[in-house]
């Protein structure tokens, strides 16, 4: 694709800058997830715009994938729907560009095979051209990430790896050392999906991670309400919400906006 230089003043929009701002305001960042192309490519752009307008500080643009082993039923169904509606991998760049050109911040969350197939360096190049800030990689661990380490350095993208409650100290140390932007802590052992409670494991994991890094730590999996967002914001630097937004997309754009507003209030309590 043609380079668009959607982001002439890149530094201002970086994840570092975002987390500095949030820290200055004494609050956590709100991160919202939605698969690109769900329910259609055009609609997903409007929904992401509503999430940003409602108060998301950053959006994760998901890549619909045929075999999403980290996802529960809600996001699986959304990915299926997007693929059936004709989503093509290159569409993710136009979705990211729509966010960036409106002044929003976007990272892409993707299983690794689509990136591998596209070409790791080419994907990084096109993501950077579209104004994306980095990649969240739920099934890529640093041990297997040599080509992504190189491509992300070349194209100045952040590498957001995941840590889990089962991670050993050694694994946390090596994972955060390979990360930039922020670290994604999964709150529970399990797959994506809204839960009534996110448990004490999240706080413990964040505490353990802080012993190894100065990077901001975001907590995801299971968050759906302002109350939960506030609870997590008390110990984490970012609150990540996915399935709850996906469910609201089925209601309306307004419902998406409202949820973002509620959650944005939660992270500021």
């Amino acid at each position: 694709m043609t380079p668009t230089t959607a982001r002439p003043e890149g530094q201002v929009f970086s994840l570092d800058a975002l987390f500095r701002t949030c820290r200055d305001e004494g609050r956590a960042a709100l991160v919202g997830y939605l698969p690109a192309g769900f329910p259609t490519v055009g609609d997903s752009k409007r929904m992401l715009s509503a999430m940003l307008d409602g108060g998301c500080d950053l959006v994760e643009v998901g890549v619909p994938y045929s075999d999403p082993v980290m996802d529960g039923p809600t996001i699986q169904a959304a990915a299926d729907e997007a693929l059936h509606a004709g989503f093509r991998l290159r569409d993710v760049f136009s979705v990211v560009e729509s966010v960036a050109s409106a002044g929003g911040r976007a990272v892409v969350m993707t299983y690794w095979n689509p990136v591998h197939r596209y070409g790791v360096d080419a994907f990084a190049r096109d993501l950077a051209s579209a104004g994306g800030l980095g990649l969240i990689t739920p099934d890529l661990i640093p041990d297997e990430a040599d080509d992504w380490m190189a491509a992300s350095a070349e194209h100045v993208l952040d590498r957001i790896f995941l840590i889990a409650p089962s991670s050993t100290e050694e694994r946390i140390a090596c994972t955060v050392a390979a990360s930039s932007g922020f670290v994604y802590a999964t709150s529970v052992m399990g797959v994506t999906g809204a839960r009534d409670s996110v448990g004490a494991a999240a706080a413990d994991l964040v505490r353990r991670a802080r012993a190894h890094t100065e990077l901001p730590i975001g907590v995801g999996l299971g968050v759906r309400s302002a109350g939960q967002a506030a609870e997590i914001a008390a110990f984490a630097d970012a609150v990540i919400v996915g399935s709850a937004f996906v469910s609201r997309v089925r209601d309306s754009e307004q419902a998406v906006h409202t949820l973002a507003t509620e959650l944005a209030e939660g992270v500021r309590r």
């Binding site: 690794w112 099934d139 890529l140 661990i141 790896f161 995941l162 889990a164 089962s166 991670s167 694994r171």
Partner: peptide, 9 residues
């Protein structure tokens, strides 16, 4: 190993 970190342990 192309798996979620949660399974590595």
């Amino acid at each position: 190993r192309f798996v979620p970190e949660a399974l590595v342990a």
